[in-house]
């Protein structure tokens, strides 16, 4: 039997647009993710992917609908949820260890556990030897590892990642993507991963949701039936290509629609 991980019911988000018409960022989204599954959302830019993620994280109130995590509703920021941001969120005045322990400190984890767990997570993300380094001495990819370790150290049951590799170069993205997959296969959190990169979505996840341009709806759900221990070489297989073509055929129209809407608005 599969347990519920994230349940999104009839979710809509509207923004009051000042004197303009209200903008509907997310409209009528109902989806479920079983616990321990890895799901990606792809969609054209401006489609409300990040808004959806913010609502699931409890950072933003939906206009309608509800979110349940492990069968219990989300009403605000929640310690069952761990967030990884697109921007560099390491705190420049803290060493790697202190950065990784920061979330636990705020959540009131006992001091001794903080040290032990921080070290475990630093080992897990491969930052041994950099415990006392400050972010200024680390590369962008390493800082994102620190942020990931901080989030994992909070031991959330759900991991929400908002384009976590978008600010990194191509090689770092591929390497870090493989790392995230390896870590997920160990820790088995329920993951919702937002990206605009098609192959990244297929490579990382078990299921891909395609989101439409405004108002954001989930217009296609594709199961990725690639081997669980896949690596980057899977990109050249026919199965991968087929998936990519299928997602792209849906996404293409939406991306075009978004492109036209954005350029006429500007």
């Amino acid at each position: 039997m599969s347990q519920p991980g994230i349940q999104i019911s009839d979710l809509s988000v509207e923004f009051a647009g000042g004197d303009a018409d209200p903008v509907t960022a997310v409209s009528g989204v109902s989806q479920e993710i079983d616990a321990h599954r890895f799901v990606s959302i792809v969609g054209p830019s401006g489609c409300g992917k990040s808004t959806l993620l913010n609502v699931v994280a409890g950072l933003q109130q939906p206009t309608a609908g509800s979110i349940m995590i492990d069968g219990k509703p989300v009403t605000g920021p929640d310690r069952r949820i761990g967030l990884v941001f697109q921007e560099d969120s390491t705190l420049p005045w803290k060493t790697t260890t202190d950065n990784v322990a920061f979330g636990m400190r705020i959540l009131g984890v006992a001091k001794r556990d903080q040290q032990r767990r921080a070290q475990e997570m630093i080992d897990l993300v491969g930052l041994q030897g950099f415990e006392q380094s400050y972010p200024a001495m680390l590369s962008g990819g390493m800082r994102q590892r620190v942020a990931l370790a901080r989030t994992l150290a909070q031991q959330p049951s759900v991991l929400l990642m908002d384009e976590p590799f978008a600010a990194l170069d191509q090689q770092t993205r591929i390497l870090l993507g493989a790392e995230v997959r390896r870590i997920w296969r160990q820790t088995k959190q329920t993951v919702l991963f937002v990206t605009h990169d098609l192959s990244e979505a297929i490579l990382m996840s078990q299921q891909v949701w395609v989101m439409s341009y405004r108002p954001g709806r989930i217009i296609d759900v594709i199961d990725v039936d690639l081997p669980d221990d896949r690596d980057a070489s899977v990109v050249s297989t026919p199965a991968f290509n087929e998936l990519q073509n299928r997602i792209w055929s849906t996404l293409q129209q939406e991306a075009m629609r978004g492109f036209v809407a954005e350029s006429t608005a500007a």
């Binding site: 605000g76 310690r79 967030l83 941001f85 921007e87 705020i106």
Partner: peptide
């Protein structure tokens, strides 16, 4: 950087924290 405040909010920091 707005992400710092977002981080604080996601961790449930109180105003003093």
């Amino acid at each position: 950087p707005p992400v710092y405040l977002k981080l604080a909010r996601s961790l449930g920091c109180n105003p003093r924290q």
